[in-house]
Design a protein around this nucleic acid. Structure first.
Length: 692
DNA sequence: GGACGCTGTCATCTT
DNA sequence: ATAAGATGACAGCGT
């Protein structure tokens, strides 16, 4: 494919915090009434705002402002819009966070509908409203089981989405509009509807995931995560692994100091699951009193942000495979105003706080204990990533993909690394957070620690009882490891367990090394083969060159032989005696042709005289073609007038079968190797002849 | 649904 | 004697 060399590459730098910064500045301006160019009147209450912001968030405002070009306009909203519903929306427009309560969610929803507020999908309300108002239903059982049931029905999502998207299920599922939904429907209908269409929701969610995220990479950590969840007991078990995945890619977005919220309100974990997230990502050790299994597990597992996210097929208790999807919403409970808690929905495109900002907060935990069961459930279900079960907005994940590059997001960046290597920053934090900083094994051991394996470890309750992380178990040197064990009072079972974890971890690394060595070995062998081929080619070329040179030498020698014989004027008898002890390839035969009477001999001689045939013979002999071992006769013996017995000399290769096979002039001489040709020197011959 | 590659784990041997 | 490393074999999972 031809490449347009003239076209220069285009690089894009995209700041993940810029939009957040701009929005925050706008919000600050709004709060200070700076540069505000519109006053929105709702129920006799005025709100100052920027037209551009409102117009970008609301179809209603967009239409209104387009018809009012002048600045300083005052807009009165319809009666359907209440302060209770509009104020959170205004805040959402400036902060991307929608604060809502059980009391105002219906108002908000109504305002969203009237004002055509964007980026607030009905699915949010479709779930929340029934949850809030369905007080009769058991709030603790349904979501979990439903979730599992739904997800069990999900096949491999990546391939099936488009197919299933055409299913009748999808066609029959319609989001419920607030206008048409009566209270009963609001309370139960949506939820049940969701339950009736699990495939659709699963598939949609999977499309979101698979469209934007390398699914295989995400899958890497599902097993680990699930095991960790199960290891951490019912508190965690009630929360599917989804939230970690759902939230983390977003919460892992780059986060700088100035991206924190102006209110500086601490993020309060909604459930143990968020506590899990918090402690897992922050890599800080909570105080010992904070003994929830979730945090403990996260701490024990040394969960990095990247490790806590992802999607993977895992086995659940009954052996069935459960497929969970990622989503893009990070729900969190936030103490907004004093004792009042509100759910805060953060959209994915908001560069929210990074994982490292999710600090465990004991105070918030205490507050969490006072939550109502419904709120708990809602928060929990949010944590489960209900977005993926409902019609998860596709654009959220698109935003994720478009707005974040792998470098920006530690999670994505981490996934790109080998295994689940923890980013340096986290490694540092981990070390700092550890009371006893230990030396890491140098070399390969320290570079490939991950937590993908050790599923049994995470699956075990024992893991939560250990005061150190599996990473440390595996990464410590032998001495450090033993030192650490000495400082801990572990039971025999725990010791065995720790050793087992360490053994497997070490073995895992060793296996990687072994495989790498194998691959290197294969590569080296391939290189060696290539080298030998090159050498063979070189040697073959050299051999051909030598053959040519040898042929020329033989021809020159033949000429000289003939000249000497002629000048010596040997008698025929002498010539015959000479020929008797001469090798068949000897140029001497050329002189004997008139003396030979048999046809066979003539043929041999004619062949011997043929330079081409001789060259062929030479080549064949060099190539090591089969044939009888030749016997060369020393020239002095040959020229000795037959008085010496022919004696075998070094075999110099077979006589060229095509030329001389079985055709020796005499039975005693046999063939001659080509080597003999080069060893023949005309001087002795002429000398002998002259002597005679 | 099977082939294939990758990876973790186990058993066994060696260091 | 013990721990650690190396490696073949196997299984699970994703493509």
């Amino acid at each position: 494919m031809p490449v347009d060399s003239a076209r220069s590459s285009v690089f894009t730098y995209q700041s993940a915090v810029h939009s957040d910064h701009v929005l925050r500045c706008l919000d600050e301006q709004r709060l200070r009434d700076m540069l505000c160019d519109v006053t929105v009147v709702v129920e006799s209450r005025s709100f100052r705002a920027h037209r551009s912001v409102l117009a970008s968030c609301s179809d209603y405002f967009s239409a209104r402002f387009s018809s009012h070009g002048e600045a300083g306009v005052v807009i009165s909203l319809p009666d359907e819009v209440t302060v209770e519903g509009f104020e959170p929306l205004l805040q959402f427009a400036y902060t991307t966070k929608l604060l809502f309560t059980k009391e105002n969610i219906l108002e908000i929803r109504s305002c969203v509908s009237v004002l055509g507020f964007k980026n607030l999908d009905n699915s949010c309300f479709d779930f929340l409203i029934p949850k809030f108002f369905d007080s009769s239903k058991n709030a603790t059982t349904t979501p979990r089981k439903t979730c599992c049931r739904m997800k069990k029905k999900c096949p491999k999502p990546a391939k099936d989405f488009f197919a299933s998207n055409t299913d009748s299920d999808v066609d029959t599922y319609k989001p419920i509009s607030p206008a048409t939904m009566d209270e009963e429907e609001q309370q139960t209908g949506t939820a049940s509807r969701l339950l009736d269409h699990p495939q659709q929701s699963c598939d949609e969610a999977s499309l979101d995931v698979n469209t934007q995220i390398d699914y295989s990479l995400l899958c890497k950590y599902r097993k680990f995560q699930m095991a960790c969840l199960e290891a951490c007991g019912p508190e965690m078990a009630s929360m599917s692994p989804a939230p970690a995945e759902d939230s983390c890619p977003l919460s892992c977005m780059p986060h700088t100091k100035d991206s924190e919220e102006p209110t500086s309100s601490k993020h309060i974990p909604v459930t143990e699951g968020f506590d899990f997230l918090a402690s897992s990502s922050s890599q800080t050790k909570p105080p010992p009193s904070q003994g929830s299994k979730a945090s403990c597990c996260a701490q024990m597992c040394g969960l990095s942000c990247g490790e806590s996210v992802g999607s993977k097929k895992v086995k659940i208790e009954d052996g069935a495979e459960e497929l969970l999807e990622t989503s893009s919403v990070k729900p969190e409970l936030k103490n907004v105003s004093g004792d009042r808690e509100k759910l805060v929905l953060m959209e994915s495109h908001t560069p929210g706080p990074s994982c490292s900002d999710w600090q465990p907060d004991t105070e918030s935990e205490q507050m969490g204990a006072e939550r109502s069961s419904i709120e708990q459930e809602v928060a929990e279900h949010l944590a489960k990533g209900f977005w993926s079960e409902t019609s998860a907005p596709l654009h959220w994940l698109k935003q994720l993909d478009q707005g974040i590059n792998n470098r920006d997001c530690p999670f994505l960046w981490d996934l790109g690394a080998v295994g689940a290597r923890v980013p340096d920053g986290e490694e540092t934090n981990r070390g700092q957070g550890s009371p006893d900083v230990s030396s890491q094994n140098s070399g390969e051991d320290s570079d490939s620690l991950d937590t993908e394996g050790d599923s049994e470890f995470y699956n075990s309750e024992k893991a939560c009882e250990l005061p150190f992380s599996v990473e440390r178990i595996a990464s410590l040197s032998r001495n450090d490891f033993q030192q650490m064990l000495k400082t801990q009072c572990l039971t025999r079972e725990q010791l065995d367990f720790v050793h087992d974890v360490r053994r497997r971890s070490k073995n895992r690394i060793a296996a990687r090394r072994c495989r790498k060595r194998k691959l290197d070995c294969i590569h080296n062998l391939e290189c060696e083969i290539e080298k030998l081929r090159t050498e063979k080619h070189k040697l073959t070329t050299e051999r051909d060159r030598l053959d040519q040179q040898r042929l020329k030498t033989w021809q020159r020698f033949s000429g000289l032989y003939e000249k000497v014989c002629c000048e010596a004027a040997l008698r025929p008898e002498q010539l015959q005696v000479l020929a008797k002890y001469s090798p068949s390839a000897c140029p001497l035969f050329a002189l004997l042709s008139p003396l030979k009477s048999t046809s066979a001999q003539s043929q041999v001689l004619s062949e011997a005289q043929d330079p081409a045939a001789m060259a062929c013979a030479l080549a064949d002999s060099q190539a090591g073609s089969c044939g009888e071992p030749s016997i060369s006769v020393p020239m002095d013996a040959v020229l000795g007038g037959g008085q010496t017995t022919p004696q075998a000399l070094v075999p110099l290769g077979p006589t060229p079968t095509s030329t001389f096979s079985g055709r020796s002039l005499t039975s005693s001489t046999g063939g001659i190797g080509v080597g003999a040709l080069t060893s023949m020197r005309p001087e002795p011959v002429s000398k002998l002849i002259t002597d005679k």
